[in-house]
């Protein structure tokens, strides 16, 4: 088990190096110059050139990559070209909103999608199945920002129930925290519910055709008991897997959701940074995203040992 974890952690190193190099060279090649943006619309070419030099942007690619990598190895993600704040500070400032949004979305999605999927899988081709599948396909088919606008319009502008935008830290009270997050989480969970419900349904159909389920049914166990205790437990592995794979999807959706609801999260941080070519911030955040992704998938692999006794590492 421990050697498995260590081996997995070691294999993530080349992944991270690849991500770093990929992102860095992508940005190096991108046109767009932070010096020209800092200097402002009315700056002259000479002022921009001076700014480039003082920011060290005139140095060759390899020098810059080496300097940056050396910093990262020492645990320093650098400072933002624009705000002059350490990238770690910027990430820390925005971690809570994004994390809260994602956790709430995952919780919401699992609570809604798993029962939906189980019921759909139980009677394949029945009306519940068709309704669930229709909803799932709809969830995939409507862009997040359309759902977001509609929710904000109905619940905030029309009904006056919830704030339109912003974020309240959990430390300032659970109710305002939830009031700010509930609409974004609902908007974001559409795709995720669709994804999880579909996988749950497929996994259930698979499991329900197995012999031991027939045995359980034959023993006279209630339908609900069979579905939610026996079958669901055995269908858990693909469900958990898809939750992990979906994290990357969720981060992407979070970018749009954070824009619509003005949540000061990491997704917006990195989009702004890309639009401004704030290289240290982009590199830092993407590196952090991939680390998170890798770690979550490691956790999920580990959870298999609990969910499925046959799996051992």
């Amino acid at each position: 088990m421990l050697t498995f974890v260590l081996r997995r952690l070691l294999t993530t190193i080349p992944v991270m190096i690849f991500v770093a190099l990929f992102v860095f060279s992508l940005l190096y090649l991108a046109p767009g110059d932070p010096a020209a943006l800092i200097a402002g619309d009315q700056a002259t070419p000479e002022q921009i050139e001076a700014m480039r030099r003082s920011l060290g942007l005139d140095q060759p690619f390899l020098v810059r990559f080496w300097n940056w990598s050396w910093q990262v190895v020492q645990g320093d993600l650098g400072t933002s070209i624009f705000s002059n704040l350490p990238v770690t500070t910027l990430i820390a400032q925005r971690l809570e909103p994004t994390l809260s949004l994602m956790l709430l979305t995952v919780a919401l999605s699992v609570l809604i999608a798993v029962p939906m999927g189980v019921l759909a899988g139980a009677r394949q081709g029945g009306w519940i199945d068709r309704a669930v599948m229709a909803m799932a396909v709809m969830g995939f088919s409507v862009p997040v920002f359309v759902i977001g606008y509609l929710l904000a319009y109905v619940f905030s502008v029309r009904l006056n129930l919830l704030p339109v935008q912003g974020y309240t830290p959990l430390a300032e009270g659970f109710r305002p925290f939830l009031a700010n997050l509930i609409l974004p989480a609902v908007a974001l969970s559409g795709v995720y519910i669709a994804l999880i419900a579909r996988i749950t349904r497929t996994a259930m159909i698979d499991v329900l055709s197995q012999d031991y389920i027939r045995t359980a049914r034959a023993k006279g166990l209630g339908t609900m008991q069979v579905l939610f205790l026996h079958a669901l437990k055995n269908a858990a592995v693909p469900i958990v897997t898809v939750i992990g794979v979906g994290i990357a999807l969720l981060i992407g959706g979070a970018v749009v959701t954070e824009t619509v609801f003005a949540i000061p999260g990491i997704g917006r941080l990195v989009v702004d940074a890309i639009l401004r070519r704030d290289y240290p911030v982009i590199q830092g955040v993407i590196l952090m995203f991939s680390l998170t992704y890798v770690l979550i998938n490691l956790l999920i692999d580990l959870s298999y040992t609990i969910l499925d006794p046959r799996v051992r590492y």
Partner: peptide, 15 residues
């Protein structure tokens, strides 16, 4: 895969 698709696409579009 660890880079969210939308972010990758945004970065590539900047490029």
């Amino acid at each position: 895969m660890s880079i969210p698709p939308i972010l990758l696409a945004v970065a590539l579009m900047a490029l």
